[in-house]
Design a protein around this nucleic acid. Sequence first.
DNA 1: ATTATTAAATACCAATCGGTAAACAAATAC
DNA 2: GTATTTGTTTACCGATTGGTATTTAATAAT
Lengths: 234, 234
Amino acid sequence: MAHKVVNIFFTEWYNILKITQMNEMTIETLAKKRGRPVAFDYETALEKAMHVFWQHGYEGASMSTLMSAMNMNKASIYAAYGSKEALFKKALERYVQGPASFLAASLAQPTAVAVVQLMLSQAAQMLADQSHPVGCLVTQGALACSAESAEIKTLLGGYRQTLERQLAQRFARAVSEQDLVATADPVILAKLVMTVHQGMAVQAASGATQAELFNVATMATQCIAQVYTLKASA
Amino acid sequence: MAHKVVNIFFTEWYNILKITQMNEMTIETLAKKRGRPVAFDYETALEKAMHVFWQHGYEGASMSTLMSAMNMNKASIYAAYGSKEALFKKALERYVQGPASFLAASLAQPTAVAVVQLMLSQAAQMLADQSHPVGCLVTQGALACSAESAEIKTLLGGYRQTLERQLAQRFARAVSEQDLVATADPVILAKLVMTVHQGMAVQAASGATQAELFNVATMATQCIAQVYTLKASA
DNA sequence: ATTATTAAATACCAATCGGTAAACAAATAC
DNA sequence: GTATTTGTTTACCGATTGGTATTTAATAAT
């Protein structure tokens, strides 16, 4: 009796820990799951799915392509991730916090020019990196997305708008810190930088190399620095 | 006998004229076509198809969407234009020589900055014009195009590359004319301008207004002008 | 009026789309 | 060993994809 209670306790504890994303292996030794064990790695398969969406966009990624890339049966995918839409959302989250995390991280740079320089140069490196699909999952999804999947479009648009707003706030701070000239419009400047970034994503998807994109990023950064900076920078 | 010969002559003449795009109405009074008359206007329907491809991309534009937009039966579309791919090529040609003709036309401006300024400001106006689908058909098709339709991808990439090369040549001329500073790299500068344009296309597809894009275009042009121009411009 | 010619409309094709119900397999609990 | 729980597999669902063969309709020539 006491044994059963303990087991139930461990099982529930296990589920809670699973939800809170803690390490499962340390727990499985305490409370083993009952049914047939899973034959795939959740995160590895999600990574594969991210790559498929990255390359083909949301609608362009067919279930059969996802199946073969994730090395999973269709029904298993649905059982594990819910639906194609839910799978995309999880893949997007992984993308934003993984390969695209440099975008938000760039905001922490001490000067506005350093923000732009880091953001665009890292974008050049990442967007044309041959070790994964070229281009940007968010930009890809923004265009390759018809009206029927409006929720995905809204999701992607929201991510872009959030980043653009954060960038504008960062530039506004730079103006108040006399890092940028007072005549610089933070909102327009943020939209310009985002525009260059999205254009670079298109270029990358069209086959531009890392070197080419880096040259574009450098030139864009120098232009902005020379026109809107008070103090001379590197 | 002689009458029949004359009629055959007119019929063949009519077909030749049709191929060479001359005015059909003036000929139809001379040699009427025999069978059931066509119930649609070739150019009007093509314009509608262009709008569909513009909005949805090549693969995103389904035949049923094209049918209802062109107000034509599917079989009629195939009879008139050949295939979906052929229809897209015709629509692309119409787009390049119509709504996107300002791009090539901008190259004729007297100075490099005037080229950039006209190109980007017209792009701002055109890309967010609500009287037709927003964004750029070429950019849209570049991203929303999977590997299976490689020919379309190549076609669109070729158009972009041609324009970029022409732009680089124009900037090279500007350097030789001492219109741009000698340190300006025409190839990179051309790629930067194309990148901004493509980024603006993404922004437009995401809902940016004409005013917002115009601000971005103006800021980008001013940056380039201030950094790479010898003589002071407006 | 009949025939020839041309175009439009209907119906259909195999293939694929996203998604699911039912059968099968592998593990633990008892 | 049997029951239970869970995951995988197979087969299937209706809808839609691009594309076509066949039938029907509308005109000119005879």
